[in-house]
Amino acid sequence: MIEIALKVTIALIALAVVLNVYRLIRGPDATDRVLALDTLYINAIALILLLDIQLDTRLYLESALLIAVMGFIGTVALAKYLKRGSVIE
């Protein structure tokens, strides 16, 4: 049962990623693109967790955590750059 649920979920997340990329390309503003990137990295975390269950290994959990941390910092840095024109003042 879990195998089927896993495949369905991976398909759903893949569809979500496609929609995010659509927003990333379409824009229209820079903030929209940053928001799309933010959603993309969260979906990437979901994909990594699903891959972990699929392969029955825990090797990739740390990378998911790293993506969570780095993605958040990246979003904040980009938002700050858009607001101030520089990241570190």
Partner: peptide, 30 residues
Amino acid sequence: LGISILLIIGGVFALIGAIGLARLPDFYTR
């Protein structure tokens, strides 16, 4: 069964978030 339901719920909500990102009218609603 519980794990499968959690997985499907997660996938559906992630997709709903992406649909919202794609089709709501302006940045603040997105």
